[in-house]
């Protein structure tokens, strides 16, 4: 893909270059996972949130940190624990004895980039406080509404295997995240490099923010305006229809999901420095978008991943 994809020919302006530099910077830290990095940028530029699910030690947190750093703006990290309360995230209204009023103290969620580490360690109530903030872009405490800063991007991580004493996100809440992805083990060669070379996490410390909230907003706008040709729309529709028609699926993708698919495809195209959207963009974001939204039929014996692969393999590309 990367070799033959149409290059963004001569688009003037810093914007594209900045995005490319941010991407390069993150790729510097997260070695050999360009697709995952692209998906992360895609989620951000599509105006959604990202959930990274993987085993400990593969670099979830590093990726999230690198992303946060590269994006600039203010960023917050929330390490979720079991005794955490919703107020620890969204903030709390405090009674001031001096003037007999309540004052709102914003929690860590008030940031452009929020890294929600190990989200499954918190209780469902605490989780839903974050999820509500993500969905609504605002926080309501004691009847008062406080808007979150823009852009607002949450990268959450979750360990799928570490189940004892944790509260994995319920299926119904998963679609608050635009994309869900995993990182996976590095290749053998890369692992060797990790062993030999100095720890890349040190790079984080020297990392400079490349983007800033304003530019991210511009990029989000640019992504939303990207050209999507009719055949690509056909393809998107065909994928959505296939997800609904698939015999192993209990509930197919919703109209909201199809809207999200277009947004992601556009953002992905922008990340890949294209002027327009290709079916390839759709195809590459589709698993990250669909796997956690599809409900496989219990009796089918097929996992969501298998179903998504099946859909992709059998939907002709127009």
């Amino acid at each position: 893909m990367s070799e033959t994809a149409p290059r963004r020919s001569a688009r003037p302006g810093q914007l594209a270059d900045d995005l490319e530099r941010a991407r390069a910077a993150v790729n510097e830290v997260i070695v050999d996972k360009p697709d995952v990095v692209d998906l992360a940028f895609t989620a951000m530029l599509a105006g959604g949130h990202l959930l990274i699910e993987d085993l400990p030690g593969v670099g979830k947190t590093t990726l999230a940190q690198a992303l946060s750093l590269a994006m600039g703006g203010n960023w917050q990290r929330i390490q979720f624990t079991s005794d955490m309360l919703p107020a620890d995230i969204v903030g709390v209204s405090v009674f001031r004895r001096e003037d007999e009023t309540f004052e709102f103290r914003p929690g860590p969620v008030f940031a452009n980039v929020v890294l929600a580490d190990e989200i499954n360690r918190a209780t469902p109530r605490t989780q839903s406080a974050l999820l509500e903030a993500m969905a609504e872009g605002q926080v309501t405490v004691d009847g008062q509404t406080h808007p979150l800063p823009r852009p607002f991007f949450v990268i959450a991580t979750q360990n799928p295997l570490d189940l004892t004493g944790t509260y994995p996100l319920p299926d119904s809440q998963l679609d608050r995240f635009l994309l869900r992805t995993s990182i996976g083990y590095p290749s053998a060669a890369e692992e060797r490099r990790l062993l030999v070379e100095p720890d890349r996490r040190n790079l984080l410390e020297s990392m400079q923010p490349v983007l800033d909230p304003e530019r991210i907003s511009e990029l989000v706008d640019a992504a939303a305006a990207l050209h999507v040709a009719d055949p690509v729309l056909d393809y998107i529709q065909a994928l959505i229809a296939a997800s609904r028609a698939h015999a192993a699926v209990q509930t197919g993708l919703s109209p909201r999901a199809s809207l999200a698919l277009i947004q992601c495809a556009r953002a992905h195209a922008l990340v890949r420095q294209q002027d327009f959207c290709l079916p390839d963009n759709v195809k590459q974001v589709f698993p990250a978008l669909a796997v956690h939204r599809l409900q496989p039929l219990a009796e089918s014996g097929m996992s969501s991943e298998e179903i998504v692969a099946d859909i992709l393999a059998h939907t002709p590309v127009p």
Partner: peptide, 12 residues
Amino acid sequence: VGVDIDSASAAS
């Protein structure tokens, strides 16, 4: 049960 299949897309 009857069904029509348009080009390209699959029908359930």
